[in-house]
Design a binder for these strands. Sequence first.
RNA 1: GGGGAUGUGGUGGAACUGGUAGACACGCUUGGCUUAGAACCAAGUGCCGCAAGGCGUGGGGGUUCGACUCCCUCCAUCCCUACCA
Length: 801
Amino acid sequence: MSSNYNPQSIEKDIQDKWDKQNKYVTRVDERKKYYCLSMFPYPSGKLHMGHVRNYTIGDVISRYKRMRNFNVFQPMGWDAFGLPAENAAIANKVSPKEWTNQNIENMKVQLQSLGFSYDWSKELKTCEPNYYKWEQLIFKKLFDAGLVYRKKSLVNWDPVDETVLANEQVIDGKGWRSGAQIEIKEIDQWFIKITKYAEELLDSLENLDWPENVKRMQRNWIGKSNGAEIKYKIDNSKEFLTTFSTRPDTIFGVSFLAISPNHPLAVNLAKSNKEIYEFLEKCKEIKAAEADIAKADKLGIDTNIKVIHPLTGKKIPVWIGNFVLLEYGTGVVMGVPAHDARDHEFATKYNLDIKQVIETDNNDFPILQKGKLINSENFNGMQSDSASNEIVNELTKLKLGEELIQFRLRDWGVSRQRYWGCPIPVIYDGDVPSVLGENDIPIELPELEENEPPTPLSQNEKFLKLNKGFRRESDTFDTFMDSSWYYARFTSADNEDEIFDEKTKYWLPVDLYIGGIEHAILHLLYSRFFHKALRDIGLVEGDEPFKRLLTQGMVLKDGAKMSKSKGNTVDPQPYIEKYGADTVRLYMMFTSPPEQSLEWSESSVEGSARFLKKVWNLISARKYSKLDGRFDFSKEELALRRKSHATLKKVENDYEVRFSFNTAIAAIMELLNSIPEDFKDSMAPDSKKYCLDEAILFILQMLSPIAPHICEYLWSNFYGEDFDIESSWPEVNENLLEIEEFELIIQVNGKVRGKLKVNKSTEQEEIEEMALNVENVNNFIGSSKLKKTIYVQEKLINFVI
RNA sequence: GGGGAUGUGGUGGAACUGGUAGACACGCUUGGCUUAGAACCAAGUGCCGCAAGGCGUGGGGGUUCGACUCCCUCCAUCCCUACCA
C-alpha cells in the first residue's frame, strides 16, 4: 500500500545520494558539452524568489540537457564584493568579510536544499585573493595593451562624511546618512577603453542568439551615430568651440551654443565671474546620474561670449546649460530650437531666436522630421540628407568641420573609492603611477581590526604607505570588473597556478546564460567587452562569451523589483519547509513564463503541491509491467498513446526552443488528467497496462527536470534502480500522432456558428456542402447570397454574406 | 528626458505562423464522503440575458472575410539610464 507523499524525507535522501555519488561534478569527456550558467548572486543574506526563479530555470535546462546526453557544466559562485557589505558592517559591527562569508554559507545551504545540480567543486568567491589576483593580472595586461588610462571624472561627494557616494546613496540630492547636500567633485580615476571595441561590440551582436530586445538595448546604448564635427570660432579669440551634430542640415537654424557646466571654458569663466561661479555651484547639486540630470529643470546662463557661425559669419551667443554632458561628444551642443525638442524648451525659456530651416505643413515647433531646407542660403530646396552632405563638404573645405562617426558609449570608469572591493594593483612615486605585474600580486585587501568600521582605503595609511616614499593606489575596482570574467574562471576555478587552462578551451563559450533583464546593458556589455579584450591579449578563444541568452523578468513585490536594499524580499525557506523543494520549483516555473515580470503571490502554490500529490498517488504503489507493446490497441488506448506522444513532442519544444516551462507543465497536467480510470485498475488488460506504463514513464521523465526529487524516487521505485532516470529520454513516435479526423470550425461573417468532425480525406467541395447543411449555420445564412467562402485547410471555413 | 518591456475572467496565465479567446491552475458555487473539519472526488464557473442571442483581450481609431496577434494614437505599470547588483 502506498504511503503519503512526504517531500521532506525523500528530498533529503535523494540529495544525499547525489552528494555521495558526486553526481554533478563535471569532467571533460567526449560527449557534446553544454555550459549552462545562471548569473551568480550577490550574497545579500538569504535567497529570495527572484533567485529561486532564475536558478530553477537554469537547473531545469541543465537537467533536461543531461537527459539528452549532453556533458553539462553548471557551476555556482558568489559576486562577493560590493557596497551592501560595507553598509551592513557599519550597521551591525561585523566585518564585511565575515558578513559576506556568513551570507554565502546561508545561501549555499538554501541552494542545496532546492536540489540544484551545481558542480560545487568549481565554486568561486570574487572577494578571495585566489580570484582577484587574476583580475589584477588582467588589469596589468590590459594596461600593457594600451587599454587603461587615467582621467578626471565626476563623483557624488558627501562633504560631511567626506566620502564618495554611489548614486543609490544620494536621495533628493542629499547624502543618505549625513543628510548633507551633496556636491559633484572631479577626481582622478582609472578608465578602460571599452570605446575602442564599440564597433565590434555593435557588429557582433548580429549573430548572437539573444532576445531581440536585449540586442536593441545594447545597440541603442552603444549609440553609433553618423554626423559631423563643426567648429565655431570664438569671437575675439583664436580658440574654437567644437560641436558634434547628427543634423548638419539644420546648421542655419543654430541660434546658440550650450556648453557643459564642467566644460573647461565654463570652469575658467567662473574664476572671474561671480554669477557664473554661483550657477556652476548650483549645477553641482544635481547628482551625477543621467536620469536626474535629464529630469532636472533646464537651466542656463549666458556667458556673454559669442562665436562666429561657420557659414553665415553671424555672431551666436554661448550659454552654459545644465543638461549638457561633458562625457558625451565634445561637451558642447549646437542649439537648433526649431528642430530639436530640448533646444526648443531651452530657447523658449530664455527667449533665444527660433529659426525654422526645414519646411513643413504646420509650424508646430519643434519640427523633428527631415525635409526640404529653407532659410539656408545656397542650400535652400535641398532635401535634408543631401543637404547634410553638401554642408559638411563646404565645412570641410573651410576647415571648420568634418564628417564624424560618434558613439554614445563612454569609456568605463573602474575606480571606486571604497573598502570592500578588489584593490587596484598600482603604486605611485609621487604622482607617477605604475601598474604592478605578475610578481607583485596579489595586492591583498587589508584586514580590519575587531569592530573597526570599513573606511575607504584612502584613509588607511598603514596600507597605503610604502618604503622610499612610494604609495599604494587607494581605489578599488568597480564590482562589474569582478563579474565580467567569472564565467571563464569557473572552468578553471580549481587551478591555483593558471588563470585559465585546457578545461577553459573545452567549456567556453557559455552555451546558455540565464539572468535578470536588469542586466541587459551594463553587465552583459562589460562581459562581452572583457571577452574580446581577453581574446586580444591571448587568454581566451572566440569572440563572444555567451552564445544564447535567456533574460528572466523581475519578480516584483508591491510593484517593485525584489531586492534586499528595497526590503521587499520573499524568502523561499518557509515554502520549502511546508511543501518541499519540488513544489517550490514547480510553482515558480508554472506561475508565469520566464521572460515576463511577475508580481509575487503565493495564491496557487497549493495547486502545484496538489499536482505532485496526484503524481505520487498514481505511481507510488505501481510497478512497471515490462510488456512488449505488440497489441492491437483499441481506439481509446490509441488516444492515450497519442496524448502521451503529443505531450512529449510539445514538452521537448517547450524546454528546448521556447523556454516555456509553464505550458510544458500544463501539458503534463493534461496528460495526467486524460488517463481514463479503467486504465488504472489492477485488473486492466495488458494492452491498457502498457498504455498506462508508457504514460507514467513519460510523465516522470518529462517532469524530472522541474521536480527531480519526486521523479527520481518514483522512477527507481517503479522502474528499478538499475537504470538512472537522468540518462534517459523517450522518443516521440510520429506515427501515433497522425489523425484521420479533424474538427472543422464553421464561421458566418467571421463568427463561429458551428463545428463539424470531418475526415481528413474529404474534398473541399464536400466540406462546404456539409458545413452549409449544419442547422445553426443554415439559420444564419438563410436566403442571403454567399459573397465569398474562405477555406483554411483542416481548420476552418468562413462564409461571407 | 532617453532606451526596453508589459497590459487578456475574481487571480496567475494559454492561444507558438492573422483563423474556435480564456488551455492548465488558483479561487468561488453546488453536491458527495465525514460525527465534524482537513484532505479527496464529481459538476459548474468571462460578462449581460429566462432564452435566442449580444458583448468581450488597457482606451480610441484603422487594415482584413477574419485581429489578443498587424498599423496609428492615447493611457497605465515595471526595468535600465554608466557608482545598487
